[in-house]
């Protein structure tokens, strides 16, 4: 990978019961995706307050993923 290529950082909020399980299943199935994601497990996507998303952008996230 060349160094000057833009590498975004994405924060993912994943619901334990679906999206987090889906991310686990991607692993079990060895589906490959870029390592730019940082996942945060929540017990429901409803836990994610709007200001958490804003906080992530404020701290420099290039994208926020909410899966639920």
């Amino acid at each position: 990978m060349s160094n000057d290529r833009f590498e975004p950082t994405i924060v993912g909020f994943l619901c334990n019961w679906c999206a987090y399980a889906g991310a686990d299943l991607a692993g079990v199935s060895r589906l490959q995706y870029p390592p730019n994601l940082r996942t945060i497990r929540t017990l429901c996507s409803a836990t994610v307050r709007p200001d958490m998303i804003l906080k992530a952008f404020q701290r420099g996230a290039d994208g926020v993923f909410v899966g639920g």
Partner: peptide
């Protein structure tokens, strides 16, 4: 979670995958 959501899904990019695991 550094297996299901890291080592298993970034098998070709050891350095970057290690960075994610650190994170």
């Amino acid at each position: 979670n550094i297996r299901d959501q890291c080592s298993w899904v970034h098998q070709q990019v050891k350095e970057k995958a290690t960075e994610r695991a650190k994170g």
